[in-house]
């Protein structure tokens, strides 16, 4: 079909032997999760920015507001370690997956247990603080505390629920490697953003 006049240009326009097979550059599930986590990071960045602005707008002696309870730094510090341990267990589960899907189940269960303990202890802390008079309405201090920590808690609970279902599928050998990677990535996000929030909100 090509004419003789400009064979050279025509040849240059044809790619040298396109590869027949099609490959994913980054696995679908993983890429989708990376994008989702990016949006989530921006959500938390927005919350933290809002917190920083309101906090900076307050007089120095009004933050935390007088008469309001102080946040339990040590207790939550211990809790933070629990959550980090959970992240470590999840990472270990990911390594074990290479040896077989069922090998990954115990570390993942341990991770879920630690994560659930974290959520439960945070809930206990909330109940105490509410009892002591720190509520969402009592001051911007309280509002931001419950907003930021609560947003993280929603993520943690949602991740735990999804991961529990995924663990069942993992045990049945139905969970694909990439889906497992994507889910673990979300858990790492939940774990790793927490120390940053702890630093900003508690310290």
């Amino acid at each position: 079909m090509a004419g003789t006049m400009s064979e050279k240009r025509d040849l240059r326009l044809i790619h040298p032997a396109p590869t027949r097979e099609q490959r994913q550059i980054v696995p679908n599930e993983v890429l989708g999760m990376i994008l989702f986590i990016g949006a989530e990071v921006m959500l938390f960045a927005g919350l933290i920015s809002a917190y920083a602005v309101v906090r900076a707008g307050m007089p120095a002696d009004a933050w935390p507001p007088p008469g309001q309870p102080r946040l339990p730094i040590a207790f939550t510090g211990f809790n933070t370690l629990l959550l980090l341990a959970s992240g470590g267990a999840m990472w270990f589960g990911g390594r074990k997956f290479a040896e077989g899907a069922d090998k990954a189940v115990p570390p993942v269960l341990a991770s879920l247990g630690l994560g659930a303990a974290f959520v439960a202890l945070q809930g206990y802390e909330w109940a105490n603080l509410l009892g002591e008079g720190l509520s969402m309405q009592s001051s911007p201090y309280g509002s931001f505390f419950y907003l930021i920590v609560g947003t993280h808690a929603v993520h943690a609970v949602a991740a735990l629920l999804v991961l529990s279902v995924a663990t069942l599928r993992l045990r049945a050998g139905e969970l694909t490697e990439h889906a497992f990677t994507a889910l673990r990535a979300f858990w790492y996000f939940v774990v790793l953003i927490w120390p940053f929030l702890y630093w900003q909100v508690y310290l």
Partner: peptide
Amino acid sequence: ATESNRGAF
């Protein structure tokens, strides 16, 4: 608005 607030913005 305080200087720290403007700095935060």
